[in-house]
Design a protein around this nucleic acid. Sequence first.
DNA 1: CTAAATGTTGACATTAATTCTCAATTACCA
DNA 2: TGGTAATTGAGAATTAATGTCAACATTTAG
Lengths: 143, 143
Amino acid sequence: MEHTLDVVRRKLYDKDYKLTPQRKIILEIFTKNPEKHLSAEDVYGIVKQTHPEIGMATIYRTLDLFAELKVLQKMDFGDGRARYEFYEADVHHHHHLICKKCGTVAEFEDDLLETLETAIEKKSGFQIVDHQLKFYGYCKKCR
Amino acid sequence: MEHTLDVVRRKLYDKDYKLTPQRKIILEIFTKNPEKHLSAEDVYGIVKQTHPEIGMATIYRTLDLFAELKVLQKMDFGDGRARYEFYEADVHHHHHLICKKCGTVAEFEDDLLETLETAIEKKSGFQIVDHQLKFYGYCKKCR
DNA sequence: CTAAATGTTGACATTAATTCTCAATTACCA
DNA sequence: TGGTAATTGAGAATTAATGTCAACATTTAG
């Protein structure tokens, strides 16, 4: 397990952030929903069920923070809201298939881009630290 | 020249849309700024200089319309606003290099993804109609 | 040529996601 | 345990984008 509390706690303390109950709760939501791409609103909805006192702003701040610490990966599927999933080395080897009809997001494993990245760096002098590849189309059910 | 007025006029009339002065003006802005990735706000700013009577809503509607007609390609660089460039077959063979420091967007030609697309379609049953590949990092000047 | 039909516009209100503000509270360290 | 800086919740503010609607323009039918 890479994303235990302890790992996150260390990442936080390294930068003088604190591990608050709210942060714990939000982190837990991601461990319990590993396959989903949750938006701030999604997280808020889940949090509210057990902790109605936690505010929207805290959700946003925490997600931002986790993205900064590379605990979560912030993503944009073009539906007008940011979505988050655990940040893993893995993130760099899977791409997203976004259905234009029903909106579901599937994943596809691949590491072809690594070679493309080095080619680009050599050719253009641009130093790549991250990438995002999205395919739009129609899933099995909708085509 | 693929993007002359005549081509756009035809695309418009095919779907019972009209070529209005406002649409002409907005189109012209793109022919005069071919290298840029303009946002609605950008376009509005440029339009205002010569035609202050044109409203924001018209800009948005026109950009949407042009995107629908595949005159322009709507893009999202994650900076919170949509950006537009001419739609060309080319769009599918170039990717964007987005500098995390200065924000400039460079382009990189490539058609590696075509093969990847067919592989994905075969494997997953997902029918791909479009893709977007973005690389984040640091440009020559900022690295 | 004229009138109805239909597309388009500008001004303004509205929405939706996100960020800001600030006083009150809390987690951590000495 | 107490001090201090980080954090929180509530609500206001911001920002991109969309919706509304009456006035306007252009095409089409007669």
